[in-house]
Simulated scan of single mutants.
Amino acid sequence: MSEPFSGLPPYEGREYRCVPAGRDEAAEVADILRRTSMQGWVRTVFAPGPDAARDPFRREQLTVCIRQRSGKGVCVAVYALHRFLVQYAGRGQEAVYLGLLRVLPEYRGSRGIFRDGFAAIPHFVRHLGWPERYFTSIAVDNLPARRLLEAGLRSLPRYTPLGELHTLIFSCALGRGSHLLTRADAAQWPEVVAFYNRMMRDVPYAPVLGEAFLREGTGLAVEDFHILRREGRVAGCLALWDRRTSRRILVEGYRPPLHALRPAVNLWARLCGRPSLPAPGHALEMGYAAFLAVEPEFHSLAGGMLREALFLARRHYGLRGLLLGLAPHGSLWPVLSRLPHTAYTTCIEHVAWPHGEAVPASCVPVQPEIALL
């Protein structure tokens, strides 16, 4: 079977050549992901899981290698463009998420990488016929990246913050089997899709569910969705998504003084029912509580739904915790943020080139699905 982007022409920049990654580049992509960490109090790196060989090459995700034009043409950076169908301006529209930007440490001072790498994005998007509507996320405490990207430099696109998104990390020790949830099946799937899309219709950048999503090769199945039923109808849903087979997250290290305080923090976490901090070099045995939606009149049951999801995640998947993305001003925040958790915050940003689409005025609160980012 041919690769989906095999005919896409590369972009020739002044100093760097941007090339669509195929299977021949998979080893280079994996190497850069292992060698570059996401900065913050906890430094993490991506490592490929057993199914990762097909994950970067789905038809909805283009991975790009940035190569030197001189010398041996070494790959010094990568990024990914992922096309989503999202809720936008009150209806489903396509948008492109800019993610996975990783630059080898010894090349981070090169402005040419950013200039040529960003210039290649409209080139690829136009050749693919994708929409020129872009968004991304940056860790709030990744100050070097935010200072660079939000500075309004002429050689870079405009980054405009739209709102914050909190990733809440819950320990499976909080799990409690309550029989609130039932597992979805193929016959119930249309009802689940209709319910989720209706509940998230006015939440900017929330994904639009549909049959096509399950065919993308994400590893997510109908049976991973769990339903809250009340009064004979779907009143809530969530998916337990274990993505460790395609992408594993390893802890590279901790920022001082957290690295020295980790044993004390873990003792406190066990006493309080919060997730512990793995030793450097170990994986986060975490999954996602994805596609969560609850009817307003049943918001009081959301905490019980999450506790049961934690119970099922530990029992059926062997997970130690679940990650859940919530907008701080969203309707479920007051209920679920009361449960013991650890959190980190990202800023969702609108990205635009000159003469590009204007910043949407209604994008507060924004809530893309973190399991997809």
Rank of each mutant, 00 (worst) to 15 (best):
S110G: 05
Q188T: 04
P131I: 12
V234W: 12
D224C: 00
A194V: 09
E191C: 06
F225E: 01
G163C: 05
A212F: 12
E106T: 05
H123E: 11
E132S: 08
D141F: 09
A235H: 03
A221K: 11
T160A: 11
D141N: 07
R244G: 14
S110E: 08
P161S: 14
G175N: 00
D202E: 14
V140I: 06
T245M: 09
D141G: 05
A151P: 06
L143A: 12
G232W: 15
E164W: 04
V193C: 10
S171R: 15
L214E: 11
A206V: 03
G236Q: 02
A119T: 13
R215I: 15
Y97C: 04
P105Q: 08
F170Y: 12
V140Q: 09
L148S: 08
A212Q: 14
I138N: 01
D116A: 06
V234S: 07
L214C: 14
G232E: 14
R158A: 13
P157A: 01
T218E: 12
N142E: 12
R229N: 13
T167G: 04
G152K: 14
W241L: 07
F135T: 15
A194Y: 00
L149N: 10
R230S: 01
Y97S: 00
A239N: 05
F114M: 09
R229D: 09
T182W: 06
L149E: 11
T167C: 04
P161D: 06
S171W: 12
R215W: 12
E216A: 03
G232F: 03
G152S: 09
L153P: 10
P122E: 10
A145P: 14
G236N: 01
E223I: 15
I169F: 07
F213S: 02
L100S: 15
I138F: 03
L174F: 05
E216T: 05
A145L: 10
T218V: 07
F225R: 00
R243E: 00
G117H: 11
A212V: 11
V140T: 13
R183S: 07
V103M: 14
M199I: 07
L143W: 13
E231K: 03
V125A: 09
H123N: 11
L128H: 10
P190W: 04
L165V: 14
I169T: 15
G210S: 05
G210Y: 10
T182P: 15
G236F: 00
A212R: 07
H166V: 08
L238A: 08
A239W: 00
I113S: 15
A184Q: 04
F170C: 00
L240E: 02
R133G: 04
D141K: 11
L168I: 05
L104F: 08
F213R: 00
A145N: 15
A239Y: 00
M200W: 00
V208P: 02
T245W: 06
Q188S: 10
P204A: 02
L174E: 05
A186E: 13
P122T: 05
L153E: 13
V140H: 12
A235T: 14
R183C: 08
E216R: 15
E211P: 08
S137Q: 14
R111C: 06
Y107H: 11
V103R: 12
V192C: 03
R183Y: 02
D224Y: 00
F195I: 11
L162D: 09
G129M: 15
F118I: 09
I113L: 13
F195P: 07
W130L: 11
G236E: 02
I138R: 01
E211W: 03
P144C: 10
V192A: 06
A139F: 02
D202H: 11
